[in-house]
Simulated scan of single mutants.
Amino acid sequence: MKLPFRSQKETEETVPFEKQLKSKAREWLDAIIFAVIAATIIRGLLFSAYAIPSGSMEGTLLTGDYLFVSKFAYGPRMPITPVSIPFLEARIGKDKFKTYWDGIQLPYFRLPGLGEVKRGDVVVFNYAPDAGNNPVDMRVHYIKRCLGIAGDTVSIVDSKVYINDKLFKNAPQTQTSYLVKTDGNGMNPELLKDLKIEVYHQLSLNDYIMIIPPDSYDDFKGRQNIRSLTEIISPKGLYDESIFPHNPAFRWNQDNFGPLKIPAKGWTVKLNDSTMALYGQAIEKYENNKISRSGNDVFINGKKADTYTFKMDYYWMMGDNRHNSEDSRFWGFVPEDHIVGEALIIWMSKDSSALLPDKIRWNRILRTIK
């Protein structure tokens, strides 16, 4: 049977206006849902954007840099806490409202990636000793440079880092602090800004502690009012209780530290007072065991144990701004399940202290991170 022909106009006139509105609304809703799902997949499995809030990686990264971080570099980590509000931090607002529900916790699993964490990589990870006791993937994000990988032995001697007894070459813009003695005529703020020098502390009219980038050292040292620059190094044997493992049996500080072996998956360590001080936090908190002591005996999950075999790889992370970075020297190892991805590109950089049009650091946009 041949159907009667209808013109486009007649067809449109037969569709009620209310249905047309519902159809348009449905199209917008579908588009929004698709965009959220697509963005969540991209952010969760491929790339994420992060901002640098502090100076711990200066001069490699500056406060106000915005980064693309590749999660595919080391393999995307599957969500451990699957029920959360997308694109928000774990806790927001003055009252630290939780944006996730931890009633469901999935086991750690990582998809295959392009490679593994390497020495020298700039890595984004969840802060392992998170005081808020958030789930692993909801902990605060940190960014540091990986200096040691699983199985390495790290040492710091007079501020120089050694990995497996070999001197580790610093990143080009690694910087540290100096005692600066002047003739008392004061410092030119514009000069300090141009040379990217941070006045960390003024000790007296003539003396300062300053963080000086390597590229600015010679220029600054040659200025007429500068009498001397002396690198500040904490002496060997001077115990700093803020330094890992926070135990006076290990008289370490941020410039003289170790040697310390980084745990690797499958490595078995003998348990005694020394190794429990160094590795007890990883065994109990990061590998989810219950530890108790009775005299010299160690009990793991209620069973007496003389040794322990690690279930994960660990990493040693440090900031390039060596005297202004809270890093592994202060809180120890980063477990593999805390690794988020590799920082690759600065896609935007803003100087909050500058005025327009100098607020955007145009020379840093789309710069690769080394």
Rank of each mutant, 00 (worst) to 15 (best):
E10K: 10
T11L: 14
E18A: 15
K19V: 07
L21N: 10
L29I: 11
A38I: 14
G44L: 08
L46Q: 01
A49G: 13
L67W: 04
L67S: 08
F68G: 03
F68V: 07
K71E: 00
P79M: 09
I80K: 15
V83F: 15
P86H: 03
L88E: 08
G93P: 15
K94L: 13
T99Q: 05
D102A: 10
Q105W: 04
L114C: 08
E116N: 14
C146N: 09
S159L: 00
V161N: 00
F168Q: 11
K181Y: 11
T182V: 07
M187P: 07
D194W: 06
K196C: 00
L205W: 11
M210T: 10
D215R: 05
T230S: 13
I233E: 00
P235H: 02
K236Q: 01
G237L: 02
A264S: 02
K270Q: 10
T275H: 04
L278V: 03
S292Y: 07
G295L: 04
G295P: 06
I300N: 02
N301L: 05
K303D: 01
T307C: 02
F310G: 03
M312G: 12
D313I: 08
D313V: 08
F330Y: 14
F333H: 00
P335K: 06
D337L: 07
I346R: 12
K350W: 13
D351M: 11
W362G: 11
I365H: 08
R367N: 15
T368K: 15
I369P: 05
